[in-house]
Amino acid sequence: MLLDAVIIVLRETLEAGVLVSLLLVVGNRFRLELRWLWYALTCGFTGALVYATNLGSVSEWFGYVGQEVVNASMQYTIYLCLLVICWLISSPLRINPRILALFLAVTAALAFIREGTEITVFFMGFLHDEGVRVKAVTSGFIGLMIGVSVGVLCYYAITSVTPRISRLIQMVILILMAAGMVEQATQLLIQADWLPATMPLWDSNGILHEQSLSGQVAYAIFGYEATPTLVEVCFYISAIAFIPMVLLGFRYYLLPVVTEGNKL
């Protein structure tokens, strides 16, 4: 039970920790105040609490697959937000810091809602069981602290390298995390029977087990899945390829038109 609880909390906090540390690096790079994070934290935790307490009725939506569909929608939204963030931070045009802060806040808030809901639901199950309450809280704390610690170390690791390498790392991890969101959302839609379920293409548990800490870190950073199906792989690759395509398309096709228009 102890290990299971740690793994459940760790899985959620690790992903949120790495994502938020990356968003913080981006925010610092553009000298944004931390206000966006406080808004995201407030909205995220309130949203998680509301979502967790109404999970029963949400689950009944769309023919009893409401939870999967809502979670998948949040993850697709995070993907779109990360796409916009990638575009904003790589654009040669002067960006409006408020717009960037807004997208950072929405991304972080959605991540907090999603991860917070899972943790809240897990712990709500132990609230009335005095025998396991201490064990559950301790396990949760361990998972939370490991997740937060990895996030903090990630933040300082990314900021300690040269600005050029830091920018490259930011972009790569943002794209991988965005693709990871799509992969998880696709998995949920397969569970909801909205997408076809097929046999796994491979099983890499022998190389990197999903439940190990390294597996959890890999899951948090790039949505590692040891037994992916064809649909998941297709969505994952498309999600990775789509962001650079949008950025390059903007730079080489739209930007000359925009700058030409401004000159006129």
């Binding site: 290990l3 740690v6 361990i142 602290m145 490991i146 937060v148 610690s149 990895v150 903090v152 170390l153 300082y156 800490l213």
Partner: peptide, 15 residues
């Protein structure tokens, strides 16, 4: 960084 490292190492060792 020190607190995070201590947390990480201790809790991973405990696990």
């Amino acid at each position: 960084v020190l607190l995070s490292t201590i947390c990480l190492v201790n809790f991973l060792a405990a696990l």
